[in-house]
């Protein structure tokens, strides 16, 4: 869903760029607060992971396949700031180096696919965890719903931007129905993939799931004085 050049008019493209720059600056500060001097290598490697994970194709129905978008997954695994930053970096690299997504639409792409996806996904995830019991199952269920909602949310923000500065003459209602319809389907695939991935990370390294850090009980080291035999 990389928006190309010419799809949005200049004011909306520039406006999107300004919002994206502000959002990315905020994420840079947030990520630096969380990771300190580990930011560059950690965010870089997570971005490389998202870049690679987007290439994993999974079968959907006969013949068709989908791939992960990774916004909600990144937010749950490494936190909202680092997650949004990593997705933004992936988009920037795809736009500047791979000509995937227009340069003038870069801001819009970042707002839709990085900022909105992560913000909505993470908000839903944390909100659900607050009301659900603190178990492994609730973490997986929450990530399912978070990913499910995050993809149509990104499509909705695209439709809103389209209403302001779209350059084609397709009536808004039709755009909204088509975009939301398609992205609800994509969202279902994204939800299964995200939830199952989070579940597999939880099974081996639960400490690496940022979003669930405060949910699961931390293992504590208990020392009990040993009774020395020989009495």
């Amino acid at each position: 869903m990389h928006v190309p050049d010419g799809f949005f008019d200049v004011p909306v493209s520039v406006g999107g760029g300004v919002v994206a720059a502000g959002g990315v600056a905020l994420c840079l500060r947030g990520a630096h607060r969380e990771l300190d001097d580990r930011t560059a290598p950690m965010a870089g490697l997570v971005a490389a992971f998202i870049f690679a994970a987007q290439m994993i194709n999974f079968p959907v129905a006969s013949g068709t396949s989908g791939h992960l978008l990774g916004g909600a997954l990144a937010a749950i695994l490494v936190g909202p700031y680092t997650g949004a930053l990593c997705v933004a970096v992936v988009l920037l690299v795809q736009g500047v180096f791979f000509a995937d997504g227009g340069l003038t639409a870069l801001g819009i792409n970042m707002v839709d696919m990085s900022l909105v996806t992560v913000l909505v996904g993470y908000a839903v995830f944390r909100g659900l965890l607050r009301v659900l019991p603190s178990t492994r199952k609730s973490v997986v269920a929450s990530s399912f719903v978070a990913a499910l909602v995050s993809v149509p949310a990104a499509a909705l923000s695209f439709v809103l931007l389209y209403a302001v500065g779209g350059t084609t003459d397709v009536p808004l209602g039709q755009v909204a129905t088509a975009m939301l319809g398609v992205h609800i389907l994509i969202g279902i695939g994204e939800a299964f993939m995200t939830a199952l991935t989070v579940a597999s990370v939880m099974a081996t390294r639960p400490d690496l799931v940022f979003g669930a850090r405060h949910v699961l009980p931390t293992l504590e080291l208990r020392t009990t004085p040993a009774t020395v035999g020989g009495s």
């Binding site: 950690m42 994970a53 994993i56 992960l68 991935t197 989070v198 579940a199 597999s200 990370v201």
Partner: peptide, 17 residues
Amino acid sequence: VAQSAGALFIRSYERGE
């Protein structure tokens, strides 16, 4: 497929460390 993605994430993260 998702388990592979999870393993890939853990490997990437640990490599970052």
